[in-house]
Simulated assay, not measured.
Amino acid sequence: MSLATTAAPLAVTRPGRDHTDRGEFRARELSATTLLIAAVGEVDASNSGDMLGYVEHNVTGYQQLVIDLSRLTFFGTDGFSALHTINVRCSRRGIDWVLVPGPEVARVLRVCDSEGLLTTAGNIVSAVAALARGPHTHLQLAK
C-alpha cells in the first residue's frame, strides 16, 4: 500500500505564534500493515482536531499504528483527548497501536492516563517490537 501523504505534511499555525510553533503531522508506511504518524511542534486546542483527523484519514487499511509524539515542544490536554478518541476508534476497528511520547506528552499522561491504559514505548523501534509481540488491549468496549 503506498502512502501519498508522506511528502505533504499538514501544517497548522497557532494564531499569534510564528511558524516555528506550528504542529506538523507526517505519515510513513513502515510495512504493509504498519503506519507511523509523527508530529513535531505543538499540539493544543487549536490543532488537536487536526491531529485526530490526520490519523483517521491515514490509518485506513492498516492493522497497526505507531504515533510518535517524541518531538513535540508542547502538548495540551486537548491532545490527550484526541489520543483517547484515537484509542477508542482504533479499538473498534481492530487496529493495534503504540504511542511514543516525549517529555511534553509524558507530563500530560502522568495526569490524564495515570493508570497507564495507553501502550507507550521509548522510541519507534521499541514501539514496532511491542506491536510484533501481539495485540494490546487498550479499551474494553461494551457489546
Rank of each mutant, 00 (worst) to 15 (best):
P101V: 12
H84Q: 07
R107T: 13
V128S: 07
D113E: 01
I86G: 08
G122I: 10
S70T: 07
R89C: 10
N87G: 05
Q64L: 02
A38Y: 02
C90S: 11
L35E: 03
V66D: 08
A32T: 05
P103I: 07
D44I: 02
S48A: 14
L69S: 15
I95T: 04
S31V: 03
G122C: 14
L139T: 11
V40G: 04
A38M: 07
S81E: 14
E29D: 04
N123Q: 07
Q140P: 00
T85M: 13
I95V: 13
E115V: 03
L139A: 11
T6M: 08
V59Y: 00
I67M: 15
V55I: 07
L139C: 11
A11H: 11
P135R: 07
R93T: 04
S126R: 13
L109M: 12
R14Q: 06
V125K: 03
F80L: 09
G23Y: 15
N58R: 01
A32H: 04
P9C: 10
R22F: 03
F74Q: 07
A132V: 02
A132W: 13
P103M: 07
G102N: 12
H19R: 06
T73Y: 15
D21P: 02
T13F: 11
D96T: 06
D113T: 09
Y62S: 01
G116C: 06
Q64P: 00
S2W: 04
E104I: 04
A45Y: 12
S70M: 08
G134A: 06
I124F: 01
N47I: 15
L131I: 04
S126H: 14
Q140K: 09
A106Y: 02
G102S: 10
V108T: 04
S46M: 14
T85K: 15
E29W: 00
T85E: 14
I37Q: 01
R71P: 02
A27G: 06
Q63F: 02
Y54T: 01
A39S: 15
P15D: 05
A45R: 09
L65M: 06
